[in-house]
Design a protein around this nucleic acid. Structure first.
Lengths: 128, 128
DNA sequence: TCAACTTTTCTACGATCCGTAGAACAATGA
DNA sequence: TCATTGTTCTACGGATCGTAGAAAAGTTGA
């Protein structure tokens, strides 16, 4: 109930990266130039999208609770409801929460974490 | 690229729970009775599905790499490729992996973990 | 070997989601 | 008030999923 499409994700990435509230037009331009000019790998973006397209995805993202907009200003300004980190962590909890044996999942999870991440975790858990 | 539909999930739950390889017929019966007779909350299951329906989802799950089948025996027998825990942990890694700042996500994640889970994690990380 | 039955594969349809955008409507500025 | 800019409505095509019939393939008792 919170999976994103490719364009939706691209928009969230911009909102998360930028980040102050942005208008649909700004986002359209950003989408047109982002990841472009790299000439390298699969140039995902670089398409000149119609503004209505951007507005549609923004509405959908709003409905999903990922984005909120200021309706006061005229060109509405959109921003992410939570940071990418919060959102991602929340997703992780969602995934974890759907399991009957959380401890076992955590064990499995920790088992395949890089050493540096393990170190990060140890610090975060600050075992006294 | 690994999100499951409602029925697909129900089938995986059975394969993960039961858990020896099962035939499509067995699964159909299990789906019909599982979560039924509870008369309580939303009785999700309890539908008598057509066997072909079950076979279809099993094929799709196979294509997704979540299920494998023994083609030798005649009623093919299906089983989960990995345990629910492995799968869930993998999903968590997938979610985490898509973030630029993994450490920040982990911090956020740890921040909202229950104390008992924090304890579990400390043990798993075996300080020192 | 053949008919009857079981199992699997093929094909398909409706619902929902997502990318995409035109048409229509609303606000704003001159 | 009119032209411009921004927003909402409506819609369509592709993909995924629940659902299952039709057809093909395999199995088995006689």
């Amino acid at each position: 109930m919170a999976s994103l499409g490719e364009l939706e994700r691209a928009v969230m990435d911009l909102l998360w990266a930028g980040h102050e509230a942005a208008t649909a037009n700004t986002l359209r331009d950003m989408l047109a130039t982002s990841t472009e000019a790299k000439g390298d790998a699969a140039g995902h973006e670089g398409k000149e999208l119609a503004v209505t397209t951007v507005l549609t995805v923004l509405s959908r993202l709003e409905k999903k609770g990922l984005v909120e907009r200021e309706r006061g200003t005229r060109p509405h300004r959109y921003q992410a409801v939570s940071s990418r980190e919060e959102h991602t962590a929340e997703l992780m909890h969602e995934v974890l929460g759907s399991a009957p044996d959380r401890a076992a999942v955590l064990a499995q999870f920790i088992g395949s974490v890089t050493e540096s991440e393990a170190e990060t975790l140890r610090k975060l858990l600050g075992h006294v």
